[in-house]
Nucleic acid binder design. Structure first.
Lengths: 343, 343
DNA sequence: TTGAAAGCGCTAACAA
DNA sequence: TTGTTAGCGCTTTCAA
C-alpha cells in the first residue's frame, strides 16, 4: 500500500513482467544476491533467502530464462529431432527423454524433420539458433553439411536408434542389420526358409531388410521376396502388402515386417483369407508396441528398449552440460526377439 | 587472409560462436544494418544485403535467438503441454501443430504434465520462464492457481480437446459429454439398449462416460454398467475389462470404449471367447486411430479431427503473436461417429 | 537507407 | 556472505 504515484510505470521496452531487479529491490538486496538466492541458495544467508522468497511470492516473479541463458551460455534446453512424431516407434524414447530431462530441470524442444531430408537444414538452423545444451537425433545424420554444422555449433549431439562407425559425437543405438540377421536365424531354427519381407521405405527399415537378405543368402536360403511400403507404416499397408505378395505367386512361409503395425496388418489379412498364422505363415514384427502381446495371435517381434535410449541420451547430454566427462560415447543398446504366437 | 595475430581471441564470456557483430564487421556495415539485412531485407539496399549474405556464408553465422528474443520480447517459441506423448490421441494434434508453427518460423517446446496434476505447476514455471509466444494445452486448465499464472503471464493460451464455459483465453475443442450422448443415440437407433462403458480414468474420458450415463437415463434405458481402467489405455486393459464385465454377470449388448485401443481389446477378447461382434456385442471406440478402419471387424468409432485442432491452435497463436486480433476465440470442432463393422 | 546509443533481464568475474 | 561492474548478442529508439 505504498503511495507510489506511478505504481506500474515502465520504460518503453520490455514486457512489463516482474524482473529480478524488482524482487531484489523489494527484498532489499542487490540483484545478484537475489539471483544467488534462487540459483545457488547455499551461497546466501538464511535471512536473505527468506526475504527473497517473500518478495517472489508477493510479486509472482518467474525468472526470464532467455536472459539467464544468454548471460550464462546455458539454456537448459535440449532439442530432439524426429522424422515425425506420429510414428509410434520413437514415442517411448521421446517420453523418457522428456521425463529424464525434466527431472534435471531441462526442457525439450521438438523438431520434425519429415522422412525427406529437405527440411532438415532449416530445422537445424532453427535449433542451433536457440543454443540448446544438447541435440538428440533419432537416426543418424547423413548429410555432410548437417554434420559439419552440428560439429561447428559445438553443441553436444546424441544420435540414436542406429549405429554408425563415425558418430558426430555421442550415440546410443543398435544394429539394424543385425536385427535382420537375427530374424533369419530365428526363422531358420524353426524350419522356415522361404522368407518374405514387408518393409517401410525409411532408411533404418531398409537396413533391416538388407540384413535379412544378406543372412538368407549366406545361409543358402531361397531368395528373399521384398515388398516395400511407404513410411510411416500402417496396418493397412501391411494388409495390402500381403495381398500383393500372395498375388505375386511367390512362395513364402515367413514374413518379417519392419513394424508391428505392418505385422498386425499381415496377420489381419491372413485371417481374412483364412491363412492360419503361424501354421502356414510365420509373422514377425518390429517394435514390440504395447498391443503386440495382446492381439490374437500375439505378435512375435523385435523389442528395442526405447525408454532406455531416451534415458541414456538424457544422461549423456546432462553430463556434458554439467561439464562432466563422458567416456563411453557409443552405446549399443541391443535388441531382443520376443517369441510369441505369430512365429 | 588478414595478418591478424590473434584470430580467435575472445573475451572471457560467451561461447566463441560467430556474432552479428563479426558479420557486420566483415561486411563493413554497422551491426544494426546487418540485423536488418537478415530480418527486414526490404529496409536495406541490394548492395548491403549482398555483402551481409557473403559474410554470413563465409562465417557460418547462426543468429542467437536467445539474444534476439530477449531484445525483442518475441521468442518464436510455442509451448505445448500434453499428459503424455505416449498416448496416441494427441499425436495428430502435436504433429500438425509443430508443422503449422514451423511454417511460420515458430518452434515447439514440449511439456508432459502426466495424468496427475502434481507436476503441472513446476512445468508451468519452466514454460513461462522461457517466455513463449503462446501455450497450447491439451485439455483445459482446472487449477485456479494455474489459470491465474497463465493469465498473469500475459501469454496467449489455447486450450484444446475440450470445451469449457470459461476458457482462459482461446479454445478449440468439442463436447465430450455430447460424444457420450451421440453414442447412446447411435446404439439405441440400432436396437441396442443394454449399454456398458469401458473408460480410461482421465477426466475427458470420464465426461464421455457421464454423457453416456445421462443419455441412457433420459432415454429410459437400463442402467449403464461402467468399468474404469487406468489411463493411458491399452489393448490389454480392454481385454481385461471385457473379461471382468462378463464375469460380473451384468447383461449388456453394446460397449462404448473411451479409446480405439480399448475397443480393439474388447473385440479381441470377444473373439477369443467366440462372442460374435457385432451380432451379439456392439463395440464402439473413440479416436479413429489409423488401424481402426482396417482391423477385423473394423471399428465403429468417434472421429475427432486432431489435425484441425493443431492447425487452428497454431493459427490462433500466430495471429496473436503477430498482433492480429482474434475474434472467435472459441471453436467447437465437433466430432463424427464413423460407422463400421463393430457396431 | 544507415547508424549510434541504450537497453532487454540476467549472471560471470572480480572485489570487498 | 554480499555487492559492483560489465557484459551475453541482439533489437528498439531516435537521429542523421
Amino acid at each position: 500500500m505504498s503511495a507510489d504515484p506511478t505504481p506500474a510505470r515502465r520504460s518503453r521496452r520490455g514486457t512489463g513482467a516482474v524482473t529480478l531487479h524488482e524482487v531484489a529491490r523489494i527484498a532489499g538486496v542487490a540483484p545478484i544476491t537475489a539471483s544467488r538466492a534462487l540459483n545457488t541458495p547455499d551461497q546466501v544467508s538464511e535471512e536473505v533467502r527468506k526475504k527473497v522468497q517473500d518478495a517472489i511470492a508477493k510479486t509472482g516473479y518467474v525468472p526470464n530464462r532467455l536472459a539467464g541463458s544468454l548471460a550464462s551460455s546455458r539454456s537448459k534446453l535440449v532439442a530432439a529431432v524426429v522424422p515425425t512424431i506420429a510414428g509410434p516407434v520413437f514415442l517411448e524414447t521421446i517420453q523418457s527423454l522428456t521425463e529424464a530431462l525434466a527431472e534435471k530441470g531441462y526442457q525439450l524442444m521438438l523438431g520434425q524433420s519429415g522422412y525427406a531430408d529437405s527440411r532438415e537444414d532449416a530445422l537445424l538452423d532453427a535449433i542451433i539458433g536457440r543454443r540448446p545444451d544438447g541435440i538428440v537425433l533419432t537416426g543418424i545424420m547423413h548429410s555432410e553439411q548437417g554434420r559439419q554444422r552440428l560439429k561447428a555449433a559445438g553443441i553436444p549431439v546424441v544420435e540414436t536408434w542406429d549405429l554408425t562407425p563415425s558418430p558426430i559425437d555421442m550415440l546410443v543405438g543398435f544394429s539394424h542389420e543385425q536385427v535382420g540377421r537375427a530374424a533369419v536365424a530365428y526363422f531358420k531354427a524353426r524350419g522356415r526358409t522361404k522368407l518374405a519381407v514387408v518393409s517401410g521405405d525409411d532408411e533404418r527399415a531398409a537396413r533391416r531388410t538388407q540384413g535379412v537378405v544378406a543372412a538368407a543368402r549366406s545361409a543358402h536360403l531361397p531368395a528373399v521376396t521384398v515388398m516395400n511400403v511407404p513410411a510411416p507404416t500402417t496396418l493397412r499397408s501391411g494388409r495390402e502388402a500381403l495381398s500383393e505378395l500372395l498375388s505375386s505367386r511367390k512362395d513364402f512361409d515367413a514374413v518379417f515386417c519392419s513394424s508391428d503395425l505392418l505385422a498386425l496388418g499381415v496377420v489381419t489379412e491372413a485371417r481374412s483369407r483364412r491363412i492360419p498364422v503361424p501354421e502356414q505363415l510365420s509373422v514377425m514384427g518390429f517394435g514390440d508396441l504395447d498391443f503386440a502381446a495382446d492381439v490374437l495371435p500375439s505378435l512375435t517381434t523385435v523389442r528395442v528398449d526405447g525408454t532406455a535410449i531416451g534415458r541414456k541420451a538424457a544422461q549423456f547430454i546432462v553430463d556434458r552440460a554439467e561439464g562432466r566427462a563422458v567416456k563411453d560415447r557409443v552405446v549399443d543398446i541391443g535388441f531382443e526377439i520376443i517369441e510369441r504366437q505369430s512365429a
